[in-house]
Design a protein around this nucleic acid. Structure first.
Lengths: 137, 137
DNA sequence: TTGCTCCTCACGTCACGTGAGGTGGC
DNA sequence: TTGCTCCTCACGTCACGTGAGGTGGC
């Protein structure tokens, strides 16, 4: 019985866009179920694994952490669907993303202002960036 | 000769707001110069160390990576000041920050839209978040 | 003497990626 | 047989933080 009984990890990797070692990593940490093996010990993946990996990948693309994904995967099981809990996780994540954006925007302002003063004619003696970094107090 | 000859690492840490182990880490990777030691082997920091650490800390607050800070510290030395090089580093960093913001804003949009559909009356059957994550294609 | 501070060294964090050294399978 | 794919295991990444076990210094 040849490889018709499932996808090899390489094919799963290239079809999903997830690195081969990352797939093994997901298995190691229990995010992906262990697949069957060929006689030679090679992993053979079924449709359910493909769907699971796609779910994980989409979640990562949306910035969910591994723990959040673990929770989402549990809630995604038929019969355990709980829209409220899913929403809670997604909203918490959304707040985190917004906080990171706010931090970065503040940072962007300071940097942009400082760099803009670099070329300003007749402005500060030499280097506004170093001045900001060296300023006492 | 008691501790009058410099700040202990603990005092430097609390006065700068940088964790004590982080200061040792900066020394280990060559970002901070090695300070003198007391007879008992305790580090004793001088004013120059304080100024250096403040520079590093400000740079980290602005999101500069360790390698960028190493470069900035070199350029901050008297006689080696090069406004153009400093500006180049700062502008590259600014572009990186803007790219991260753009990524996060895109992500925020998708998340916000999806979560908003959660409570929508008579909308999708159950859970828009899971639907997004499970969608085939 | 107490007890707070300091010392070094090793390991943990996060989500993976890389590399070594070896083998399956067409 | 070739050569591509797969296997496991260990270590590297980034910028630190934590903990163990021991000591300085007032």
């Amino acid at each position: 019985m040849p490889a018709h009984h499932g996808l090899t990890i390489g094919r799963l990797a290239s079809s999903s866009g997830v690195n081969l070692e990352t797939i093994r990593y997901y298995e190691r940490i229990g995010l992906m179920p262990e697949p069957g093996r060929s006689q030679g010990g090679h992993r053979l993946y079924q449709d359910a694994h493909q769907r699971g990996l796609r779910f994980i990948r989409r979640s990562r693309d949306l910035g969910f952490g591994i723990d959040a994904i673990r929770a989402l995967l549990g809630l995604a099981e038929p019969g355990r669907r709980s829209c409220g809990e899913v929403r809670t996780i997604a909203e918490a994540h959304l707040l985190g993303v917004r906080a990171r954006i706010a931090d970065l925007v503040r940072l962007e302002c300071v940097l942009a202002e400082t760099v803009a003063r670099c070329g300003a004619p007749g402005a500060t003696p030499c280097c506004p960036v170093l001045e900001v970094l060296e300023k006492p107090a």
